[in-house]
Design a protein around this nucleic acid. Structure first.
Lengths: 252, 252
DNA sequence: ATCATAGTCGTCTCCCTGACGATAAACACG
DNA sequence: CGTGTTTATCGTCAGGGAGACGACTATGAT
């Protein structure tokens, strides 16, 4: 009996964000500390209600801007401006996922270059970048000795799904450039792959592969030595979005 | 201000289904004729409200069973029983997508072997299998001369997204076997790829590829001549879900 | 000057793929 | 009963891409 307007169960609809970046050779996600019940004091993914007049993508872009100050650029845009990549991830609607009421959350995945420091949210939430490995471990202690509690709600599952999406998508798309500043070197791009996949890649074969894929990288003419060593050529992301053949993720 | 229980905008949440199958060498989708406003008399994807106590996947499985009689098997199951593959596709929440109220639809993608005939839905809806190419063309006339109206709501977009998901996913997963009966020949599997991709594949190279990929196909010992010609070996789907290296979709 | 660090170019081999030839086993005809 | 048609299956060969790794280059640090 589809669409009987007189009798439909009301749901709350939220967007949650998996915002990923690469900091200090580690894949990190943005986490906010909850200030209220339930899960008060626990870390959670940023998110909030979808407003009555906005699209899901708009809601996600608004939350992203509130939490990080990042603009999301339109999907399909050349990805040059220092906006973040934003795409829908999946939707989570278990009846018990929020103990208070029926909430359906449309999770989004955002990829951003390394940012200076997390900005306080619109409502002065505490926010931080944390290695995903630390956020996903169940209990235990972080490297700084502080006790780690699992993420609130089903956010561990959402984060895991987002990380898996990012890991697989940089294989066959040029999405890894979304983790880089507008201009970057081949070595910086390689370190992105290494951080996201958690593997070491051969610098020579990687260089051959990415510079040999037409449309992936466009040289800007400049060079930099910000990584030390011999100066490296600077590149921008090219127009190609699909990599064919893909980058191969090493086994194991 | 996340999760203020006293003030959240209420949404209706539905599931819509993109149910795909291969019939007579063509990729077909299940469409139902709408019996009420809006879009009365137009074709639409099957779907319905999510009930207050059920998960999104449960709602999708229930709708699928109501429309087709198919059981969906759990994700990760060996896919042997004649259940259909069911996975979440994407969520559509444009404020204007339903003229009556704010509806967020969690679309799901189902892949099924060729079925005898579409069963009337629980409320006796008219349902039929139609080639996706016919459902996606805007206006014009179908092959049988009947005029074609675009699908209701944003269902053309949802269908297009589902088809694209299926097309890309059979590249790197063993999902194409979801279109086949429990036992099938290499030729039947090849015709699935050809129908979904709309290309012709070399039978010899295809045979070498699929039989050479460990875990993809398991011979059952039997043979069949139901396609004419020399008897062909019968196979079941193997346990492998990811194809590495993937099937390559020809250019163009 | 020497060393450490990165970047870049080459080479070699192996494996996969695409393009195709050839053979095998059924059925439909006359 | 041969002959043609259809589909399945095995083989061969050339080309491209990827992994492994050697060699050289251009910086800064000591």
């Amino acid at each position: 009996m589809p669409y009987d307007p007189s009798a439909f169960p009301p749901f709350a609809v939220t967007v949650d964000l998996v915002v990923l970046t690469v900091r200090r050779h580690a894949l990190c996600a943005l986490a906010v500390r909850r200030g209220e019940q339930p899960f008060q004091g626990r870390w959670a993914l940023p998110g909030g209600f979808v407003r009555p007049d906005e699209d899901l993508a708009q809601a996600a872009a608004r939350e992203l801007a509130e939490e990080t100050g990042l603009r999301a650029h339109d999907p399909g845009a050349p990805a040059q401006d220092n906006g973040a990549h934003l795409e829908q991830l999946a939707t989570y609607g278990d009846p018990k996922r929020d103990p208070r009421m029926r909430v359906v959350s449309v999770a989004h995945l955002a990829l951003a270059p390394d940012l200076p420091a997390p900005r306080a949210g619109g409502d002065a939430n505490i926010a931080r970048w944390a290695p995903v490995e630390e956020l996903l471990q169940q209990g235990g202690y972080a490297r700084d000795g502080e006790p780690v509690a699992p993420l609130a709600f089903d956010h561990a599952q959402i984060l895991a799904d987002g990380v898996e999406r990012a890991r697989s998508k940089i294989e066959y798309s040029s999405l890894a450039t979304a983790f880089c500043p507008p201009e970057f070197t081949v070595g910086e791009l390689r370190r992105v792959y290494e951080a996201v996949w958690g593997v070491a890649l051969d610098p020579r074969n990687f260089h051959r592969k990415v510079t040999g894929t037409p449309g992936f990288l466009v040289p800007t003419g400049g060079t930099t030595t910000r990584q030390g060593g011999r100066p490296a050529q600077l590149f921008r992301a090219g127009g190609a979005t699909l990599l064919n053949p893909p980058m191969l993720r090493p086994e194991v």
